[in-house]
C-alpha cells in the first residue's frame, strides 16, 4: 500500500474507532463491557479518537514533504487495528453469561468490602437486596440463620450447576469492578419444583422466602421460590461492587 493510502486508511480507522466508542455509549451496550463509572472516560476516548482521526487525514501530497520516497507500507497494522471494529460491529453484543461461569466458577466467599460500606448496604430492606448483597450478607454474618424467613426479590440469569440436587438451580449475576476481564460471578440457590424447566442463561425474576442452603459445604443464600418469572436482560446486566 502506498504511503498516502496508508495514511488515509489510518485516519479512517481512528475515526471509526472513535465512532465505535461513542456508538457503544449511545446504544447503551457499553455496560456489557465495563463498569458504569468509566463512561466519561470512554466518552473522552471516543472524542479524542475522532480528533486524532481528523488531524491524521493527509492534506495533499505536499503536506507529506520528505515522506514521498515511494516505499510501500505493510497492511498488518491496519488489519490489527481493525479487529476491534470487525468484532465490535459484526458480532452481536452479548453480556457474559453462564458459559463464562464454567471457567470462572462461582465466588461464594465474595468480597466482603471494607469499612463502613458494607454495613450501609446491609441496612437495606430485604426485598431491595440484589444477589451480591445477599451473598455479602451471608459472608458477613457470623450465623446466616438470622436471615431465614426474610423475603428476597432478585433478578439474574439461570445457571444449572451440576453440584446441586434436583429441584434447585442458581440465579447468578456477574459483578464487574472495572471491565469484564475482572468479572466474578455470585449466585443464590433457587429451590423450586419446576427448577429443571429453566434453560441456562434465561433471565428470571425470583421472589420467595430466604433459607440457608449449602453448596460444596459452604452456606449460601437459598430462595424457596414463590414465583419465578421470565424477564428480558436488564439494561445493566452486571452488578458493580
Amino acid at each position: 500500500m502506498n504511503e498516502l493510502n496508508y495514511k488515509r486508511t489510518q485516519s479512517l480507522i481512528l475515526l471509526a474507532l472513535g465512532a465505535y466508542l461513542l456508538y457503544k455509549i449511545a446504544s447503551g451496550t457499553l455496560y456489557f463491557y465495563i463498569n458504569e463509572r468509566f463512561t466519561w472516560l470512554v466518552l473522552l476516548g471516543g472524542l479524542s479518537l475522532l480528533a486524532l482521526g481528523i488531524v491524521a487525514w493527509p492534506r495533499g501530497v505536499h503536506a507529506e514533504g520528505h515522506h514521498d520516497h515511494a516505499h510501500a507500507r505493510g497492511v498488518w497494522p491496519l488489519a490489527i487495528l481493525s479487529l476491534p471494529l470487525v468484532l465490535g460491529f459484526l458480532v452481536p453484543a452479548r453480556p457474559l453469561d453462564s458459559s463464562a461461569l464454567d471457567t470462572r466458577g462461582l465466588t461464594t466467599n465474595a468480597l466482603v468490602g471494607v469499612g463502613g460500606q458494607v454495613a450501609v448496604q446491609l441496612d437495606q430492606p430485604s426485598d431491595q437486596r440484589n444477589v451480591l448483597d445477599w451473598v455479602r450478607a451471608f459472608n458477613y454474618a457470623t450465623d446466616p440463620v438470622i436471615y431465614e424467613g426474610e423475603q428476597a426479590d432478585v433478578i439474574g440469569f439461570v445457571y444449572q450447576d451440576a453440584r446441586l440436587p434436583e429441584g434447585q438451580f442458581l440465579v447468578g449475576r456477574f459483578a464487574v469492578s472495572c471491565c469484564v476481564a475482572d468479572a466474578f460471578a455470585v449466585g443464590m440457590i433457587v429451590q423450586s419444583d419446576e427448577a429443571g424447566r429453566w434453560a441456562a442463561n434465561q433471565w428470571v425474576h425470583v421472589t420467595g422466602e430466604v433459607q440457608v442452603g449449602t453448596l460444596d459445604g459452604v452456606a449460601v443464600p437459598m430462595i424457596l421460590a414463590g414465583s419465578i418469572k421470565e424477564v428480558s436482560i436488564p439494561p445493566q446486566p452486571y452488578l458493580f461492587p
Binding site: 466508542l21 470512554v42 471491565c179 469484564v180 476481564a181
Partner: peptide
C-alpha cells in the same frame, strides 16, 4: 465461548484504549 471471548476482548480494549 466465542461470545465470551469477544465480550472480554472488547471489554479490555474499551477500558484500556482511553
Amino acid at each position: 465461548q466465542f461470545f465470551t471471548f469477544t465480550t472480554i476482548f472488547l471489554g479490555i480494549f474499551i477500558e484500556a484504549a482511553p
